[in-house]
Simulated scan of single mutants.
Amino acid sequence: MEPVEPDASAPLRVLLVEDDDADALLVIEHFADADLVVDLARATSLAEAETRLGNDVDGAPDCILLDLALPDAHGFEGLRRLLHADGPAVLVLTGRRDEALGADAVGVGAQDYLVKDAVDGPTLARAVRYAVERRRSDRVRRALRDAQLRADENARLERGLLPTPLLDDPAVHILARYEPGTEQTLLGGDFYDVVEDSDGRLHAVIGDVCGHGPDEAALGVSLRIAWRTLVLSGIDPDRVLPTMHELLVSERNHPTLFTTLATATVDESRERLTMRLAGHPPPALVGEGDDTHLLSTERLGVPLGIGAGRTWPPLEVELPPKWALLLYTDGLIEGRQDSGEVLWTDGLQALLQEVTTGPTPWRDDPGAMLDAVMERVRTLSMARTDDVAAVLLVSDR
């Protein structure tokens, strides 16, 4: 839970941890003499202070004034136990005029130290104000640093999940879109890639590691790189998915983790497609209006990571002239509408047919067509918590 910053107009909440009644009364008088309104509470032992902080009934204090000599703690023991990353500022109260002791207290983590018989109301008020403001600044800097670390982590994952296609054929154009789920703070496990091998065959993959977060995203990166390596190495196509299955089983951090995946290989003539599905929704051949349709799931295989000794039989498809192939993850079809219905593949096919129908051919601006599909899915969905990746391959031949 993120720390809640105090209201600037409200009195500062101060917890005095002091077992000596006379010293406690002196602190109360100092605050009364100073131009600072505080909500002062007192604990007479470290255990009582920890209980108050744990109960947090009246809200966490903004500042703790801590005596170093308590009945149940001596030296810096109490200071170390009361210091927390998102906790209040801690000012040390000491009866000893010992500069080294004060410096050591600051080194342990105290915001400042005060000598009891050398402090007055204005000095105490100023020290509390400064300590609270420094603590707030520390929290802001820490939050900014954490946000930058997350942004850097996401950027690294994104570069791995969303690569630059490796393609030399000027007659084939690749357009890709990726949108993280609306409830996510990190990238999920959606990944894709497109490469052309030395024989001129065009290979595409799209996959979805179940779950969300850095572990799933890292696994997605590993699978994508493995796929690219296997394809470019010229391995027998029938061995690509079994090898990736073995990699997933060895790399996953939980035995139930699996990945759905679709691969497509277009021969060098660009007239024939070989497709393999591992529990993944089928790609769509995008034409004009009713010519748009989803490919068959006749040979749908199980996801990677499920069972052992699995095979994924290919499905051969004849491609029309100037074909376009859309691969996508299930985030594009699983958005739930207000009626409770889910788009699914039939809904996506109808939506594609609608978007590709019009007086202006969509091929004049395929990127706008793909954006329109993404936007329509977004507006049709009441909520979407899954990532969406979509890759459109457009051939001019």
Score class of each variant (00 low, 15 high):
47 A>C: 07
81 R>F: 04
117 D>S: 07
92 V>E: 04
104 D>K: 06
28 I>D: 14
99 E>N: 10
122 P>G: 11
54 G>V: 06
91 L>C: 04
83 L>S: 06
128 V>A: 04
24 A>W: 02
119 V>M: 14
40 L>N: 02
120 D>S: 00
51 T>F: 00
124 L>V: 04
23 D>N: 07
60 A>C: 12
34 A>T: 02
102 G>W: 07
112 D>H: 04
56 D>W: 05
101 L>D: 01
129 R>W: 04
36 L>I: 02
59 G>D: 14
43 A>G: 05
94 T>C: 07
53 L>A: 14
47 A>Y: 05
96 R>Q: 12
93 L>K: 05
40 L>S: 01
78 G>M: 05
75 G>K: 13
126 R>F: 03
99 E>G: 08
33 D>Y: 01
86 D>S: 08
46 L>R: 09
68 L>G: 15
25 L>V: 02
55 N>C: 09
104 D>V: 05
84 H>D: 12
101 L>T: 03
37 V>L: 09
107 G>C: 04
111 Q>E: 14
57 V>Q: 14
82 L>V: 15
85 A>F: 09
68 L>T: 15
133 E>M: 10
46 L>V: 10
58 D>C: 11
29 E>T: 13
47 A>G: 10
65 L>H: 08
125 A>S: 01
128 V>F: 09
85 A>T: 13
79 L>T: 09
63 C>Y: 12
56 D>C: 08
103 A>S: 08
113 Y>M: 00
60 A>M: 15
25 L>P: 00
98 D>P: 04
42 R>V: 14
111 Q>V: 03
23 D>I: 01
80 R>K: 14
72 D>T: 12
124 L>S: 03
68 L>S: 12
72 D>F: 13
54 G>E: 15
96 R>Y: 13
30 H>L: 01
64 I>H: 13
59 G>M: 14
54 G>M: 08
79 L>H: 08
69 A>H: 15
49 A>S: 09
44 T>Q: 00
100 A>N: 03
101 L>N: 04
71 P>D: 13
41 A>T: 13
128 V>Q: 06
48 E>I: 06
65 L>R: 05
123 T>M: 12
38 V>A: 10
83 L>W: 03
67 D>G: 11
61 P>A: 12
74 H>D: 15
83 L>K: 08
119 V>A: 11
122 P>T: 10
70 L>T: 15
62 D>H: 14
57 V>M: 11
111 Q>A: 14
73 A>Q: 10
52 R>V: 10
41 A>P: 03
81 R>V: 05
105 A>D: 01
80 R>D: 11
95 G>F: 05
40 L>V: 02
134 R>D: 03
83 L>F: 05
66 L>K: 12
56 D>Y: 03
73 A>T: 08
92 V>H: 04
124 L>K: 05
75 G>C: 09
46 L>P: 13
130 Y>I: 08
77 E>H: 15
53 L>Y: 14
134 R>T: 00
92 V>G: 04
60 A>H: 09
102 G>Q: 01
94 T>H: 05
74 H>Y: 14
124 L>G: 02
68 L>M: 15
126 R>L: 09
56 D>P: 02
140 V>S: 15
137 S>P: 01
61 P>K: 12
106 V>H: 08
24 A>G: 07
